[in-house]
């Protein structure tokens, strides 16, 4: 193991250790917040694989998040599934839908890719509304405590919930760290930098992008399924444009194309909105201002700045 690798493992393992230990010291309010942040950060990690590492800006990831959430939720509500197979159903739904969308959307590039993903996600959102009889539309439906018993463990209990969220986050983070250092991830980064050249090195860039989109969509769906399961609710708002913009915002803020960026961005943005929503109902104003400010002044994001100024080897 090189020194570089040791440092990388120490940094990312250190974060996981801190998050694991935090559950014993945090007051209840922040304890609950952090569980939520870890699930949302997993969503951001999924988004980052496509946007940060492959350079494809999707405006439709809410489709994958909601696919996971609804496949899980509807599976419990109407299919009588228990949490484990329901979660699995969510993950599979995410993989299938992201694969299907990738087949269409990857025929386009740049701005067209953004609009295509936006449109299909919007169609997904409207479909949830259209089948309001089952999905309860904007209102959503509650997943009862009794339906959230995983192998005798009550997922609505804060301690268990934190632990489950931590598990999801640890897996997502490790997967993303492993992937971006593996040959597959290196090719994704190269595609982001110069797709034409990658092709002329003999790589099938289409297949790589397809793989990136499916991995990205599947992690997003796992986060969506976990969110519904842990917090006991599925609603159409999680499929709306806003939930496609959120991971973009978190990743931009934390640092696109860095492994830690999604977590950092989610953490900051969550508390920023949490604080401002105490002052005004127009808390999305903060999101707007941050988006504009980031594109203007810090397109690299927080972890990106660290990479640029302090440690160039930051993965």
């Amino acid at each position: 193991m090189t020194r570089q690798t040791a440092r990388i493992l120490a940094l990312h393992g250190g974060l996981l250790a801190v998050l694991f230990a935090a559950q014993f010291v945090l007051p209840a309010y922040h304890h609950g917040n952090l569980a939520r942040i870890m699930v949302l950060a997993s969503y951001a990690i999924g988004y980052n694989i496509l946007f940060g590492y492959t350079g494809l800006l999707s405006l439709g990831h809410a489709l994958f998040f909601a696919a996971g959430m609804y496949a899980m939720g509807l599976g419990i509500q109407y299919g009588g599934l228990s949490p484990a197979p329901a979660f699995l159903a969510g993950v599979v739904a995410g993989a299938l839908i992201s694969g299907a969308l990738a087949l269409l959307a990857l025929r386009t590039t740049g701005v067209a890719f953004m609009i295509v993903t936006l449109m299909f996600a919007q169609a997904g959102y409207l479909t949830i509304l259209y089948f309001g009889e089952y999905t309860r539309g904007d209102e959503g439906f509650v997943i009862q405590t009794a339906q959230r018993m995983l192998w005798g463990i009550n997922l609505s209990d804060p301690v268990n919930r934190y632990f489950a969220a931590f598990g999801l986050f640890a897996i997502s983070l490790s997967l993303s760290l492993w992937m971006v250092r593996a040959p597959f991830g290196r090719v994704l980064v190269a595609i982001r930098e110069n797709e034409d050249r990658v092709q002329m090195l003999g790589y099938d860039t289409y297949v790589h992008k397809l793989g990136a989109m499916v991995v990205s969509g599947t992690i997003s769906a796992a986060a969506g399924a976990a969110y519904g399961l842990l917090f006991g609710y599925a609603g159409a708002s999680f499929a709306s444009v806003q939930y496609s913009i959120f991971p973009l915002l978190w990743v931009l803020l934390g640092g696109a194309g860095t492994v830690l960026g999604p977590f950092i961005g989610t953490l900051f943005m969550f508390y920023l909105i949490d604080l401002s929503s105490g002052v005004t109902t127009a808390y999305m104003l903060i999101a707007g201002v941050v988006l504009v400010a980031l594109t203007l002044f810090a397109p690299q994001g927080l972890a990106g700045e660290v990479r640029r100024r302090v440690w160039r080897g930051l993965p």
């Binding site: 800006l57 127009a282 808390y283 104003l285 707007g288 988006l291």
Partner: peptide, 14 residues
């Protein structure tokens, strides 16, 4: 595009 998304929220929320 990202900036105009930000602008969207700023105008709407203001």
């Amino acid at each position: 595009i990202v900036a105009t998304i930000g602008l969207l929220y700023i105008l709407q929320q203001l």
